[in-house]
């Protein structure tokens, strides 16, 4: 009956999610995804929640630290990436990322802390390296190309934010 894994439109109840033991005592005690997630900024993919927006709107207030001595670090600095590729330019917002993560989660074992010093590869990302450590696993998935490739290049017309640019007129659609 259930459509296979593809297009998820709703949160599955725990007893039918294929992970929880429907006969186990946890069912009925654990919070159901729907109860929590249906109140948050909606999305069309992943958890069906725009997590950054939910945080910014104050719909959730996740703790920043457990230990009093921990320094909470945030950085408000955008980095532009993929400056010469065929896709729109990537705008990487440090702020949205450091609201959730600490600098050490990415620097320097994933990325050198110097703009231009990192070589990015969609192949690596799709295999779970670089941005793909999180994107495609816990943060919004890699189907959402234009959320990262969000800055249209001059002459690279795009009508509505979030929709793909029309393919180039003459052949070679590129990536």
């Amino acid at each position: 009956m259930q459509a296979p894994a593809a297009a998820q439109q709703e949160w599955l109840p725990l007893r039918r999610d294929g992970l929880h033991d429907p006969k186990g005592p946890a069912i009925g005690q654990l919070q159901e995804p729907r109860d929590a997630l249906s109140r948050l900024a909606p999305d069309t993919t992943g958890n069906l929640v725009r997590w950054v927006e939910a945080l910014e709107k104050g719909q959730i207030a996740p703790r920043e630290k457990l230990r009093p001595q921990t320094t909470v670090r945030e950085l408000d600095k955008d980095i532009l990436l993929n400056l010469s590729g065929g896709m729109p330019i990537v705008r990487f917002p440090h702020l949205a990322h450091t609201r959730w993560l600490d600098c050490d989660n990415c620097h320097d074992h994933l990325f050198k802390a110097q703009a231009g010093a990192n070589k990015f590869s969609m192949f690596a990302i799709l295999q779970g390296e670089q941005c793909g450590v999180c994107h495609g696993a816990v943060s919004f998935p890699l189907t959402e190309c234009y959320r990262c490739h969000s800055v249209v290049r001059p002459g690279q017309g795009r009508s509505v934010a979030g929709t793909p640019a029309p393919p180039p007129a003459a052949g070679g659609g590129g990536r």
């Binding site: 995804p33 929590a36 996740p62 230990r67 959730w100 989660n105 816990v138």
Partner: peptide, 18 residues
Amino acid sequence: PHWFHRIRFRCKVCHQEL
């Protein structure tokens, strides 16, 4: 469940502090 925990804690709490 990541979803349950990230409502209550930022990623950095578990992935940095812990």
